[in-house]
Structures are given as structure tokens and as C-alpha cells.
Amino acid sequence: MEKFTNVSGVAAPMPLVNIDTDMIIPKQFLKTIKRSGLGVNLFDEMRYNLDGSEISNFVLNKPAYRNAEIIVAGENFGCGSSREHAPWALKDFGISVVISESYADIFYSNCFKNGILPIMLPKEAIDVLMEDASKGENARISVDLENQTVSATDGTEYIFEVDAFKKHCLMNGLDDIGLTFQKIDAVDAYEKAQIETKPWL
């Protein structure tokens, strides 16, 4: 996984609550056997008409937001299915930070596996950042993972919480499987004990 670097960029405002994974990447694009190339279909049914032309008032189709790196969204972002195609599509489009009041668990966890930082902040902060985001290119939001801060355009810094282990993996681009293999003796021992005590498994 690539290392996460600090971001200072345009944020797309998506105030809708409960933006689900079917919206983020509709099922017809789950038929791929690759991880790449999904950015073009990010938010497909909100972004394109049936004939494939762009829906001009959708935020990511507006000139100011075509290169957005951040999404500021309504609460419970990423609810619904476990499809990792959702973070794959966000990342492939160029989004590396999402800011919302809350996330669905599986989506939240999937983000960290793909170099995306999902930031949780209280409503008051989201309201300010949503307003900033609505100013398009005139307002850049800065995210610093090491110091765990989001800076609004007026200079206000919001501190966010992030699990120390997840932060460490994201900052260093660490591969989970490689890390687990370092502890594989513990898994061997667990399995050995399980065969003794729970032979039916």
C-alpha cells in the first residue's frame, strides 16, 4: 500500500446523509476481477444520465470539483455492503480523505486498507467544513495525519481521533498480511490448542 501523505486540496461537499455503497459504486461495476479503473464509475448513477452524458449539477461534474481530493459528507457515509470497490473507486478517482460525522464499520475499515483516511468530526466542525467545501477552488482544506488535524480556510484547526495502529499502517503504507505473519507463531499455537480442545472445528 502507498504511504498516506498530507493533503491540502479541494473538498467536494456531499451533505446527504446515509450515502451508501450502492451509490458510491453501483453493482454493475463489481463484476471486475481487478482493483483498478473504477474511478470513472464513482457515484455512477448520480453522476451520469442513462445515455452516459454527465449530470451537470452533480458535485463531481462541476469544474471546481473535478480534481477534488477530499469529500465532506453527511453522517453514516459508506453504509450498506462490504464491497471494497467503494474505496477502490474513491481512490482511483483521486479521493484520499473523507470527512463525516460517522461511517459504517466495514467501509471505515476498508478505507484504511486502501490508503484512504476517513476522518470523524463532530457536527459543528462538519458544518464549517461543508461551508468551506461549497466555495470550491477558493477554499482548500488541509489534512495532517501525523498531527491529526484538519484545517479550515479561516485557520481553525480541528483535531480528530484515529486508532494508533491504523494510523501507523497508513502513514507507513504497511501491508497487514506481512504484519500478521510476524506474529504467526501465536496463530500456530492457537490452532494447535484448538485441535486439542475443539476437535469438531
Binding site: 464491497r83 466495514i106 476498508n110 498480511i177 505473519f181 496463530v187
Partner: peptide
């Protein structure tokens, strides 16, 4: 679980 976790479970 997501696909990265599927791979993690397959491997470990």
C-alpha cells in the same frame, strides 16, 4: 469483511 480482509483471512 472487505476484499483486503478476505485476502488476510485466506493467508493467515
Amino acid at each position: 469483511i472487505g476484499t483486503s480482509e478476505v485476502e488476510h483471512v485466506l493467508a493467515t
